[in-house]
Design a protein around this nucleic acid. Structure first.
Length: 623
RNA sequence: GGACCUGUGGUGCAGCUUGGAGUGCACGCCGGCCUGUCAAGCCGGAGGCCGCGGGUUCAAAUCCCGUCAGGUCCGCCA
């Protein structure tokens, strides 16, 4: 690769005139000055070896491709120094702790053939130290900075800078930087204008909890950090920007998950004027295709397959399916409900219920507790879960259904899902949406446990036709199921003639390997349609005006039809890098409880600060 | 808001099921020896409120309750 170009900006100074990791046999005989960390010492009493490590260069993300898989030290950044006891430097170095920083001068020497270290890029040479300057000394470290050492995450976050020195994290940060560069280069080349939008804005009544910032000059008033630049990007469309993008900071005061950073995260926020859903899909497939091609060795089939929200739920039991493997949920309503005497199946159609089944591969001899977990999951979704365990080695059929179904019925069920000896068949009876959910959880678990998914595949897919509304469990009222600014399919006519539960939206997700990467929509740019759409969710026109004054007003002055999407930047990169959690791709992440173990945030402030902001703290009463 | 898992010298773990002296492993740390190592090696040593509080018991790292911290999940995330 072009790593020679990348190391070009290196400038010699009083600390160093070469990088440790760059020394090669060509340099034998040269006088060099090197600076870095003492990564390892091997003290033979009459001879002292030191591994001197550079800081990570601009091509740190490439380090892993060479010797990065080797155990030991930071092979691409390290060179061996040799010190002899007749020098002043010898005793100084012998006393110096690991991870102290030094600057040394010396001569590059060829190693004797027997002592070449093939694991080091610099393994053919070593530096005979002539002089040593200690630049800083390190105390005993809280944990080993060795590349592959096993360190708990709590310690890594508390001493994030030491975690970085180990190597892999900085290599990911370097790759993340290239990821961001590529996004900018690609989208700019496709005619998208990068615009930065405010971080101090107004609280929005919809969506997640806001982070609030008290105003000093307006007592009792607050800014809010944006959950996403949603309204700003739509205003840019009204303002005549043809295509917009931004690697946008987003702030949401919500609980975190392994794939969801607490507090703050970034989105590749995009919006296009005079554009359709198809236009958005086309641009995203181009962008993602390029990102994968240039940053990953995995395959990403394109164009991305599409499935409707209803199909995703029915076939995979989730709206974010991992389509890298089969084991799809099967609708067996027809097979069983008419034929069996078992009331659970027989009466399903009369209740408007469906019967769904899943081939649980290799599950025939799983413990009772495993099946009970499934049964409990089905019950909590308002469904009835049951199962059938196929015979193993000529033994009996097992599971509740083996006692309740006839041999013919069991045969039909087994045939319907394609079960084999050693498998089990799980069934779920209930409302169409819910019936597959518990089965989908089992499918996901089996996929992981049995390793059914191809690890070299990035299986993107579009999930389209999300419902516009759903019933709020608490209030019983119709709510927007996703973005309230989405255009309903069928427009005003659909809103006026269909039941809220029947109306679909031009609302879509892009999913990869079972992870939701992004939501997007064709926006509702027509005030009269908007008014009707909000009315169904119980919003008066006055409330729209009050809640979204800028957008409401702007849409009175000729808004273009527009559509967009906002792929999660951190999450996409996490999937691309196969990282188990999102903190691994963030330099200074908050922990799961939204606490910064390094800086100590959040923290109390002084009474003076509170007073200046016209705030009083009222702590919750202890229970 | 809820569920589950984890918490043992500086680090990573084992010990907990079935209570019996802080018992063990690897790394690190301190001291000594050592001229070709490269995760150097050899010898010796120090280092512990078993997260914290309460309970059961003759006796608790171990069992029970509470609490704090970290993680995973559900709710939540338009």
């Amino acid at each position: 690769m072009a790593d020679t170009d990348r190391s070009e900006p290196f400038v010699a100074n009083r600390y160093r005139d070469r990088r440790c990791g760059d020394l090669r046999p060509d340099d034998v005989g040269a006088q060099v000055r090197l600076a870095g960390w003492v990564a390892a010492k091997r003290d033979h009493g009459g001879l002292l070896f030191v591994d001197l490590r550079d800081p990570a260069g601009p091509d740190a993300d490439l380090a892993g491709r060479g010797g990065g898989h080797l155990r030991g030290h930071h092979d691409d950044r390290v060179v061996q120094l040799v010190l002899h006891p007749d020098q002043e430097a010898f005793s100084t170095m012998a006393r110096l702790r690991l991870e102290s920083t030094v600057s040394v001068t010396g001569q590059v020497a060829r190693r004797p053939p027997a002592n070449v270290n093939a694991k080091l890029a610099t393994g053919d040479v070593e530096v005979e130290v002539a002089s040593l300057e200690v630049l800083s000394s390190s105390e005993v470290l809280p944990f080993s900075v060795e590349r592959d050492s096993d360190v708990g995450e709590e310690a890594r976050l508390t001493y994030r800078y030491l975690d970085m020195r180990r190597g892999p994290l900085v290599e990911r940060l370097a790759k993340r930087a290239r990821f961001a560069q590529l996004v900018r280069e690609h989208l700019s080349g496709r005619g998208f204008l990068e615009v930065q939008t405010p971080v101090l804005t107004v609280s929005s009544p919809e969506g997640a909890r806001d982070y609030l910032v008290p105003s000093r000059i307006y007592p009792g008033e607050f800014y809010a950090l944006p959950q996403a630049p949603q309204q700003f990007k739509q205003l840019l469309m009204v303002g005549g920007v043809e295509r917009y993008f931004q690697i946008a900071p987003c702030f949401r005061d919500e609980a975190s998950r392994a794939d969801r950073s607490p507090g703050e995260f970034y989105q590749i926020d995009m919006e296009m004027a005079f554009a359709t859903q198809e236009d958005v899909f086309g641009e995203v497939e181009l962008l993602f295709g390029r990102l994968v091609a240039e940053l990953s060795t995995k395959r990403a089939p394109s164009p991305f397959p599409r499935l409707s929200y209803a199909d995703a739920l029915a076939r995979y039991g989730t709206d974010k399916p991992d389509i890298r493997f089969g084991l799809e949920v099967t609708d067996v309503s027809g097979q069983l409900s008419g034929r069996t005497e078992l009331p659970m199946f027989a009466e399903a159609p009369a209740r408007g219920h469906v019967v769904r089944a899943l081939r649980a591969q290799g599950a025939a001899e799983r413990p009772r507790s495993w099946f009970d977990t499934f049964g409990e999951a089905a019950r909590s979704g308002g469904c009835t879960g049951s199962w059938l365990q196929l015979p193993v080695d000529g033994a009996d059929w097992k599971g509740p259904l083996s006692r309740k179904l006839t041999t013919e019925e069991m045969g039909a069920l087994v045939a319907a899902v394609g079960a084999q000896p050693g498998d089990a068949v799980l069934t779920s009876v209930g409302p169409a949406g819910a019936a597959s959910t518990a089965l989908g959880q089992v499918r996901t678990g089996l996929g992981r446990e049995l390793g059914l998914a191809d690890p070299d595949l990035l299986a993107f897919c579009w999930v389209v036709d999300f419902p516009m509304y759903e019933v709020n469990e608490e209030t019983g009222q119709w709510d927007f199921s996703h973005n309230p600014f989405s255009m309903p399919q069928g427009g005003l006519e659909a809103l006026e003639t269909k039941g809220p539960g029947e109306i679909l939206a031009y609302q879509y997700d892009v999913v990869c390997n079972g992870v939701e990467l992004s939501s997007g929509a064709v926006r509702n740019h027509l005030p009269e349609v908007m008014e009707k759409a909000f009315a169904i969710a119980g919003y008066s026109r006055e409330r729209i005006e009050r809640s979204f004054p800028a957008l409401w007003n702007a849409f009175r002055y000729g808004p273009p039809p527009h559509a967009g999407i906002a792929p999660g930047f951190d999450r996409f990169f996490m999937v691309l890098e196969d990282q188990p959690n999102i903190r691994e791709v963030i330099a200074f992440p908050l922990n799961q409880s939204a606490r910064d173990l390094l800086m100590g945030a959040p923290a109390p402030v002084t009474p003076e600060q509170l007073s200046e902001l016209h705030l009083q703290v009222v702590l919750p009463r202890k229970a």
